[in-house]
């Protein structure tokens, strides 16, 4: 690894992070990542504030999804992956040798680009995280299901057909079901990987409202291609380019008076 590039990349990052008051939940320190020989992340250092919404933006292939999937170690499934640096959840290194991946993922919820409900009933979908955790108490499961569906603003639409297949829902409903599933186990962090890219504008608006409502309860990290969306829903925005973190800070600043020339070019639509 070439140290010159690494240090310069780090110096390039412009920070002006909006603080939430409760401190950082996640601390990404000096994270680099390689797919085989190809380096996808270069020395990313980034604290995530508790209770705030952080948006990751940048052109395709800039490493924002890769970064997101590092946080709950979904990248472990990829062959030939290597990582340097650390990610700390409440000060514990999640890449430590003795870290329990399954326990880690139980503390995080994730929503994917395409809705991916499981081929089972709506109820079973929502309580799946509890079921795999060994919860069998019916009242607990039912209460959790209602709470999760209410916080995903889906309860009123599906409360009468909880035992029907989740595959019968519309795309937007399916995605909100996936959000309900992600928050069912009451995670500390909610990871969203372009959650609206497969949805129509009305469904998108619903999901965005939902994100605003969830702010404060959860620390949300959202990857998005849609800059208006990032501007609307997030408190902090990180702009990434070619695997490097270019600018990270208050969303208003990033979109109105970006400190970096590259961010300026990207948010004004000059490239990307």
């Amino acid at each position: 690894m070439n140290m010159d590039i690494a240090t310069s990349a780090r110096e390039d990052t412009v920070y002006h992070v909006k603080r939430g008051g409760a401190g950082a939940v996640l601390d990404i320190e000096n994270l680099s990542l390689w797919y085989g020989q190809a380096q996808a992340l270069h020395n990313v250092t980034m604290p995530m504030e508790k209770g705030l919404v952080t948006a990751l933006i940048g052109p395709s292939g800039c490493g924002k999804s890769t970064l997101l999937r590092c946080i709950n170690r979904m990248n472990d499934l990829v062959d030939g992956l290597s990582i340097a640096g650390s990610i700390k959840l409440h000060g514990e290194d999640i890449y430590a040798r003795d870290a329990d991946v399954i326990a880690l993922r139980k503390r995080m919820g994730m929503v994917f680009q395409k809705p991916n409900p499981f081929p089972m009933s709506i109820f079973q979908n929502v309580v799946y995280p509890l079921k795999v955790d060994g919860v069998r108490d019916k009242t607990v499961l039912e209460e959790t299901c209602e709470r999760a569906l209410r916080s995903a603003a889906l309860w009123n639409e599906v409360k009468d057909r909880l035992d029907q297949s989740a595959l019968g829902l519309s795309g937007g409903q399916q995605q909100r079901l996936c959000i309900a599933r992600a928050v069912a186990a009451d995670p500390e962090v909610l990871l969203m990987d372009e959650p609206c890219s497969a949805l129509d504008p009305i469904a998108t608006a619903k999901i965005e409202d939902l994100i605003s409502e969830l702010t404060g309860h959860y620390t949300i990290i959202i990857v998005t291609h849609n800059m208006q969306q990032a501007a609307r829903v997030s408190d902090n925005t990180a702009f990434m380019y070619l695997g490097r973190l270019v600018e990270y800070g208050d969303t208003e600043v990033v979109f109105q008076t970006p400190k970096s020339g590259k961010t300026q070019d990207y948010v004004t639509g000059r490239f990307g």
Partner: peptide
């Protein structure tokens, strides 16, 4: 793949 990932992300082994 999305199904497997969805399940793993829920904390399933």
């Amino acid at each position: 793949r999305s199904m497997r990932e969805g399940s793993l992300a829920c904390g399933a082994s």
